[in-house]
Design a protein around this nucleic acid. Structure first.
Lengths: 195, 195
DNA sequence: GCCTGTGAAGGCATTCACAGCA
DNA sequence: TGCTGTGAATGCCTTCACAGGC
């Protein structure tokens, strides 16, 4: 988040204070300083932080100096949207495989890749050294897909299927659930609207 | 989340224990009980919770007894994917408007709606009584869109644009940022992989 | 015996407040 | 004077542990 904020700063600005970052990120300035102090003491008292240096350090900490290969399983509307998502390229994330179990989609081109059958999944993950996978299948298929992915060596999963998937220790899952997000919004609406 | 779990239970199952829900949701059983106790004392000691009753109560609490109208601003790949997203219909969320500033898209049909020009935004929000908006524009446009939406009466925003938007008090924003999610995964990868 | 409901304990994250340095 | 870095204080969320009821 801080990285995003730093990147949206005007090009000429060389320094930034915790206060300024806090306002941009919508958090408390003490929190900014605590968070950034985890990186080391890169701030200068009375002055602030050097923007470029801070970007570099955060990028290093996030592992953005490495390239990460990503596969997407389930090429429906959402999967396609993600495959085309320009944000991947900017950072060091490269989509290296698209998989779907619908034969009519096989060979269809999305962005610069062809959709492949699920039978290719394990081999592709291994060959292309993918350590991140995005699951955009229907919920019923998500667990099996996750099992196959982790078995094949994937160690991080971004799960868009509205279901909880279970994975071995050492594998990280982050879940993005659109209907949950809407339900949370609906909850807040009800609070101020009385239903 | 509990609602999701309850719905994924086998059709015949009438009762459920906090332990079972905890396992499904991947949390501690004491947490389940604490969370559910907020709804009232609907569990039976020595037995568990009644599945149907619990679903009803959670739905009520979340405001799912009301219908909520949703507009989507920015009909790129992601916006289209969301417009088609079946999950909206199941719950009480109805997409009632799609807006984009690209004239070539105006009048194009997505699902059962036509894409409209941005000039129609305020009138549509008012006429169709939309209280939820989804922003899937490029980041540079997001703040202005949010301003117009809140001005027109929207009170909840789901922001997919990778930027922090500022809104008046009483308006809720939830942010879903794909590149942040990937960066977090990359961070964990680095921890176990050494970069 | 089994499972809920909940006060108490514990742990974690945020914020305060200020010493220290430019 | 301005702003960082950080111990201390606070507050919140989670978990424990067990009394209470079926």
């Amino acid at each position: 988040m801080y990285l995003h904020c730093l990147e949206s700063l005007p090009a000429g600005q060389a320094g930034v204070s915790s206060d300024q970052l806090a306002t941009m990120a919508g958090v408390n300035s003490a929190k900014v300083r605590k968070d950034l102090s985890y990186l080391g003491s890169y701030g200068v008292r009375g002055v602030g932080y050097d923007v470029e240096h801070l970007k570099l350090q955060i990028g290093l900490e996030l592992g953005l100096e490495s390239d990460w290969s990503v596969v997407i399983v389930g090429v429906g509307n959402l999967g396609q949207a993600l495959a085309n998502y320009a944000g991947f390229g900017e950072r060091r994330f490269r989509v290296v495989g698209l998989f779907d179990n619908d034969p009519r989609k096989h060979g269809v081109r999305v962005d610069r890749l062809l959709i492949e059958p699920m039978s290719r999944l394990e081999a592709a993950v291994t060959e292309r050294n993918a350590s991140i996978a995005i699951i955009t299948t229907p919920p019923a298929a998500a667990q099996e897909v996750a099992d196959r992915l982790t078995e094949a060596g994937v160690r991080s999963i971004l799960n868009f299927a509205p279901t909880v998937i279970r994975v071995p220790d050492g594998v990280d899952v982050r879940r993005v659930d659109l209907s949950t997000e809407l339900q949370v919004l609906s909850f807040y609406l009800r609070r101020t609207n009385g239903g």
